[in-house]
């Protein structure tokens, strides 16, 4: 029976369990039951935390191990293609992710262009204009909260139905995917910006207003500059969040091996979708498709890490003096 866990992880789990039980029993004997419970709980929450680190470390290690061999200069700069050799009757796949990188940047960029103004203005409305008891403010706050919970695939279905009703069937386009991502990104931007704007001390606004400055000028010249670090950080994190979305892009922009930099026409490839299709719909050469998927996944993780780093650096640089 003990053989179930005859691996490193299994042994770690077993050790933890034995340790906790022994700790509990010893503590009951030596100290008392209350202390024993306390120690047991402390052990349990620590184990819970360590448990959460396992998938984090394991995921990153796996992605790096599997993807590192795939990533090369030619993988980043060439368009993936499969060529058929009529003489030997073999299909050779040249790995490449350029079409996916370009697609990801275009689609995410447009999504950010749509979401940031809407999100920022909504948060300005919520913080600066709306009275707390006003029904519109309460409704919008609630809807934003609910919108953060929209399944990403539903956003993709929405964009697909919207464009297939307006444009007609086969309405796959990068722009459609951007619309889908905007639905997911707007609530994140609103929440982040709202929080940051609320951190601006009310005294600043009152001081400005008391001096006869208009509300508009107060917001643009006092409130926004004070919060700018937080706003940029929040927006970068929102971008980092949607850049890895797979399902909505897959439905709205479909997938392709061709290079397509026009967001308004035809399917567009993106990194997450390249990673998905590499496994779910592999080409003739399954191993090559899978390897390509891992390369795309690693590129995606690198992009997310870069965005997170930028967000943090911006927060550091632009933060008002004395801010943590």
């Amino acid at each position: 029976m003990l053989l179930i866990g005859f691996t490193v992880v299994g042994w770690l789990v077993l050790t933890a369990v034995v340790y906790l039980i022994a700790l509990g029993i010893l503590s009951v004997v030596v100290e008392n039951r209350r202390k024993a419970t306390d120690r047991l709980v402390r052990g349990l929450v620590t184990v819970a935390f360590l448990l959460a680190l396992i998938p984090l470390v394991s995921t990153l290690a796996t992605v790096i191990a599997q993807g590192a061999s795939q990533i090369s200069w030619s993988y980043i700069t060439s368009v993936g293609a499969s060529t058929f050799d009529p003489n030997t009757l073999t299909v050779t796949q040249t790995p490449g992710a350029l079409q996916a990188i370009v697609g990801t940047l275009i689609i995410t960029g447009i999504a950010a262009l749509i979401s940031v103004p809407i999100g920022l203005f909504t948060s300005i409305y919520l913080v600066e204009y709306a009275l707390p008891k006003q029904w519109l403010a309460r409704t919008v706050t609630f809807l934003v909260d609910v919108m953060t919970g929209i399944p990403s695939i539903v956003a993709g279905l929405f964009a697909f139905s919207l464009f297939s009703i307006i444009v007609g069937p086969k309405a796959f386009s990068g722009f459609s995917a951007s619309v889908a991502l905007s639905v997911l990104m707007i609530p994140t931007v609103v929440r982040a910006c709202e929080e940051m704007l609320r951190l601006v001390p009310g005294d600043l606004r009152e001081a400005s207003l008391a001096l006869g400055v208009s509300k508009f000028a107060t917001i643009v010249k006092i409130v926004l500059p004070t919060a700018i670090a937080g706003l940029i950080t929040g927006i970068m994190l929102a971008v980092a969040r949607i850049i890895g979305e797979t399902a909505p892009i897959f439905l709205a922009a479909s997938f392709t091996d061709n290079f397509n930099a026009n967001p308004f026409e035809g399917p567009m490839q993106t990194l997450p979708v390249l990673a998905y299709t590499g496994y779910a719909f592999p080409g003739k050469d399954i191993a090559a498709s899978n390897a390509s998927a891992w390369g795309a996944a690693l590129l995606l993780v690198i992009l997310v890490v870069i965005l997170n780093l930028i967000a943090r650096i911006v927060a550091k640089i632009f933060a008002p003096k004395g801010m943590r």
Binding site: F121, T122, Y129, L143, F158, F160, S161, I165, V183, I186
Partner: peptide
Amino acid sequence: IFRGLSTGSAVLIMVILAGVALFLIIS
């Protein structure tokens, strides 16, 4: 103008959510 833009964005969010439901139902 600024007030209009802000309030408009807030209303737009309600429109988007309604639009999601509407287009899914139509399709």
